[in-house]
Design a protein around this nucleic acid. Structure first.
Length: 449
DNA sequence: AGGTGTAAACATT
DNA sequence: AATGTTTACACCT
């Protein structure tokens, strides 16, 4: 019967997209919590807008659908990671989280075999090239920073996931790039550039792929771990560099987001890094915001590598000057982008890239406009209370779950829960804002945690 | 000369 | 302790 349902869904999805209501009505038994198992190798593209999982053996059937009023310009869906070797049933598994654009249908795994959650692993985007989503700029990182959700609802188990984004009706980034390269008659640097890609660009890419172009620091860390070589290097110097770049580059703006509490508990505030508007359109600029004309004179031009002597007056670093310039900067306003824009545009390669991204961004923007977004520019992510305040139960994409009672968690929209595996006891998300039935989870027997 | 990475000091949360 | 700011300097174009 499971197969039938899946085949039903697949057939119907393959032929004509369904709307939420129809789907829920027809497939509700399988529309449960945000978890599913699937085998990525069998992920197939049925139409431009739909992917589905083909059947594998007798164990799995699943379906992914992409469309959402939350972010119509960025169809995305989450992918978990199969693990072929360590599962007790020798199969595959993955938790799946509700991305803002993905609906998941699954019919469960075969039998009652459970996969230990601690075997889960995130999936590297480059492993999904069969989907044609390998271009990094099309990647979308799930958010995983909601500590409240994580510790409060997942029983300590939590796994971040990688999600991919695609814009079906648009030319992909590769063709865009090829086009531009042809226009400018410039050799492309495909492989090499990825290795030595500077921090600023990497951060920019990460943020471009993120919902609302904003990420928390931890998310950026994780993105580097998943997508860059730097992130897999040993020490923590790369973290320092990330922070350094975030602070130094005008393209990255820090936004304080306060999470209102449902029961007027102390409001929590975290911070996010968001791309400046001009950076969204034009890309990153050199990281020179605060770099003054420090006489870079090599005070000791003798043998290089002797930095110790020059560090003798290290007490001056940061220090008193730091505080002064900071307050000054704060009063002046921050992300005006003066220096950035001035510094931009002379580099030809950078210019091309900017155009390319601008074009793609324009296409993204024009193909669909987020419904809840009014004319005013919103510098913050939709996870700010402004979005939360306006949410109501009538909006099917917002939810409130009783399991949050007593927790320092506000009413969240789907943007908050992306990437959060809530565990068997976690909240259940559905499009109508109602908790779905508490069917059997993917990992029965794991309730003890 | 300027961009970048890295280390580090200091500041803030 | 994590996060954010800033200085300093080497290295590379």
């Amino acid at each position: 019967m499971a197969t039938n349902n899946f085949q039903n869904a697949r057939q119907r999805f393959g032929d004509s997209p369904l709307h939420d209501q129809e789907i829920r009505a027809s497939e509700s038994p399988f529309y449960t919590r945000g978890s599913c198992s699937f085998l990525l190798d069998n992920l197939q593209q049925s139409q431009q807008d739909h992917y589905y999982m083909s059947e594998q053996g007798s164990s799995f059937h699943g379906l992914l659908r992409q469309d959402s009023p939350l972010s119509p310009d960025m169809n995305s869906f989450g992918l978990g990671g199969p693990n072929y070797s360590n599962t007790s049933h020798g199969g595959y598994y993955s938790g799946y989280t509700n991305n803002q654009n993905a609906d998941v249908f699954y019919t469960g795994t075969s039998g009652t075999t459970a996969c230990p959650r601690n075997h889960q692993q995130s999936y590297s985007p480059k492993m999904i090239q069969g989907l044609g989503l390998s271009d990094p700029s099309l990647q979308c990182q799930l958010r995983d920073t909601d500590q409240n959700l994580r510790t409060g609802n997942s029983g300590g188990y939590y796994r971040r996931q990688v999600s991919m984004s695609r814009t079906p009706s648009l030319p992909d980034a590769a063709s865009c790039k090829a086009e531009d390269d042809a226009e400018d008659d410039v050799a492309s640097n495909t492989e090499e550039s990825k290795i030595g890609e500077p921090y600023a660009k990497l951060i920019h890419r990460a943020l471009m792929g993120a919902p609302s172009h904003s990420m928390a620091l931890q998310e950026i860390y994780q993105w580097f771990i998943d997508n860059t070589e730097k992130g897999s290097s040993a020490g923590s110097g790369w973290r320092n560099s990330i922070r350094h770049n975030l602070s130094m580059n005008a393209a990255f703006c820090k936004t304080d987001r306060t999470i209102a509490s449902p029961s007027d508990a102390p409001a929590k505030k975290t911070s996010e890094w968001v791309l400046a508007d001009w950076a969204i359109a034009d890309g990153v600029t050199p990281t020179t915001r605060y770099r003054k004309t420090t006489s870079k004179k090599s005070a000791r031009p003798d043998s290089h590598g002797a930095m110790n002597a020059s560090r003798q007056n290290a007490g001056k670093k940061g220090g008193s000057m730091a505080g002064r310039t900071k307050t000054l900067r704060m009063t002046q306003g921050r992300s005006l982008g003066f220096d950035g824009q001035a510094l931009r545009a002379r580099d030809a390669e950078r210019d091309r890239e900017a155009r390319r991204e601008r074009r793609r961004y324009h296409q993204l923007r024009t193909m669909a406009t987020p419904p809840q977004e009014d004319s005013e520019q919103r510098p913050f992510s939709p996870t700010t209370p402004t979005a939360a305040a306006g949410m109501n139960v009538a909006n099917p994409y917002y939810f409130k779950d009783s399991s949050f009672e007593g927790m320092d968690v506000a009413v969240y929209d789907m943007g908050h829960v992306q990437g959060v595996y809530t565990g068997d006891d976690g909240p259940v998300f559905t499009h109508n804002g109602l908790p779905s039935f508490d069917g059997e989870g993917l990992w029965p027997g794991m309730h003890g945690h």
